[in-house]
Design a protein around this nucleic acid. Structure first.
Lengths: 150, 150
DNA sequence: CGGCGGGTGTTGTACATACAACAAACCTAG
DNA sequence: CTAGGTTTGTTGTATGTACAACACCCGCCG
């Protein structure tokens, strides 16, 4: 008993594939691959991304700066940082004006995870292909806001 | 006090931008736009996507089929369906072999949300550009598994 | 110097997501 | 028809994400 017939009216409202659905699928597959590879190291790709962003930043960052740079809600970052602080991987940034620091333990863990990250990066790059990587860069350019500020 | 100097060793492990970080940013921006537009209608884009997928499917689906098609974990889909069932928007699919149905109320809500969805779809398409849409399609092709089955 | 408005970090709530584990239903070999 | 492996849907737990609301701090303006 197919339902195509009785839902033609609704189907007409859904004439093209939802862009958000595509982005969600891409997210599930790619982030899932990284998280699986990093799991034995005790990190998610979101956590490693935060550590690496802090470690390679060219200036000291407060949570609000980081949230703006990553186009992420302040409250989301706050929870993520709370998890990292609880494990002693980052410190600071816990009151207005205070900047974030990666602890020695945080740096060690990031180093430990680097090879798993790189392997997944290579595998994902191969899956997406050279044109896929260019496609992703294009999308990121279209979606990135540039909130310049002192 | 910049931290570039003391972290050069770690920075060397992070020579290229993380692909997962890019995908996560894309996800935050795009899905966030859809969710914001749909919020007044009482739906998220994940929920609307499920409703529309069921309404336009060419065959009856059980949760496991849907999860495979969407490359989504069974348990994730189970929670999403539970929310929709609690609101009386879908029915069925609650035991092995049973297929999913969108209720009249579910259909009504999907219809109500269609204009907000379309407006966001148009706005997002403009933000990404024609080449951006092609880029997203390419990425989806590279990432989509095809689990053929009877 | 004092107020006060905006920025900051957190917390309550809710949703999307996944892994592990489970009981129950299904299906096929015998 | 039965037995045993497989599939299925759910639930416990954990993370990532965002909105609203909050208390707090800081800097500026009078």
């Amino acid at each position: 008993m197919y339902n195509t017939r009785r839902d033609e009216a609704v189907a007409a409202l859904w004439t093209e594939p939802c862009l958000a659905a595509k982005v969600r699928r891409l997210h599930r597959v790619v982030v899932g691959a990284y998280d699986e590879a990093l799991r034995p190291r005790g990190l998610t790709v979101a956590q490693l991304d935060l550590l690496m962003t802090l470690l390679t930043a060219d200036r000291d960052l407060r949570p609000a700066d980081l949230a703006r740079a990553l186009q992420m809600d302040r409250s989301t970052l706050s929870r993520n940082l709370a998890r990292l602080r609880r494990r002693g991987l980052v410190a600071g940034g816990d009151r207005p004006g205070s900047h974030l620091t990666v602890t020695a333990e945080g740096r060690r863990l990031a180093e430990d995870a680097a090879d798993a990250w790189l392997a997944t990066q290579r595998a994902t790059a191969e899956m997406l292909g050279a044109d896929g990587l260019a496609a992703l860069d294009l999308l990121i350019r279209r979606v990135t806001t540039h909130d310049e500020e002192g």
